[in-house]
């Protein structure tokens, strides 16, 4: 997958941000996707994982929902020209400063209306070479951690050439085992989903 603009930042904090976009494409945005936002006037880039996509209603939608015999054109028009954007919540799992990624919270969050981009395969690969970000996911208070871990790791696996995938899965599994060695049932559930 290549990098692409998928929305603009609505609000942000050190631990995460929310961006808005219009009608979702079938492929983007989706749960567990790696995205990035500029910060510190472009000095750094905050890497995050999408953990929630919320589509809120507005006055028009409510009215239309109650309208009988709604025409397809209206529906399409409402979707394309929404009053309120779709809200996508992102968990910060690291940042890039110069050429290097850090698996830690960013020094500064991105600023409103900054463009949000998806991460290209090469970036995902680079970022997920180490697994320290998994701890940030486990610690996140709002995100569904286990689901997010599975989704993120699947994405990390897919970003790699097929001959590398098995090794990567095993490494990631080992990392999870380290983090969750105290909670075997949970670990076992995760590993089952990660297994090829």
């Amino acid at each position: 997958m290549n990098e692409m603009n998928i929305g603009r930042l609505l609000r942000s904090a050190t631990t995460g941000y929310v961006f808005g976009c219009s009608v979702p494409e079938p492929e983007v945005p989706h749960f567990g996707m790696f995205v990035k936002a500029p910060a510190q006037r472009g000095q750094s880039e905050v890497v995050g994982l999408i953990y929630n996509i919320a589509i809120e209603d507005d006055l028009f939608v409510r009215q239309m929902a109650a309208t009988p015999n709604l025409s397809e054109t209206y529906i399409q028009d409402q979707r394309a020209n929404r009053q309120v954007p779709i809200e996508v919540s992102v968990l910060c799992v690291g940042y890039r400063n110069g050429g290097q990624y850090a698996h830690a919270l960013p020094p500064q969050p991105p600023i409103t209306l900054d463009w949000i981009n998806t991460c290209a395969d090469a970036e995902v690969r680079d970022f997920t070479q180490r697994h320290d970000y998994l701890q940030l996911i486990l610690d996140a208070p709002d995100a569904p951690a286990d689901e997010l871990i599975v989704a993120a790791l699947q994405r990390a696996v897919e970003s790699r050439p097929p001959e590398d995938r098995e090794r990567y899965r095993r490494e990631a599994g080992r990392e999870l085992a380290k983090l969750l060695s105290r909670d075997l049932p949970r670990l076992q559930r995760l590993l089952k989903r990660l297994a090829p």
Binding site: R169, R170, G173, R174, L176, A177, K192, L194, A195
Partner: peptide, 8 residues
Amino acid sequence: DTFTADVY
């Protein structure tokens, strides 16, 4: 489950 056994 060889994957899990291996990871363990």
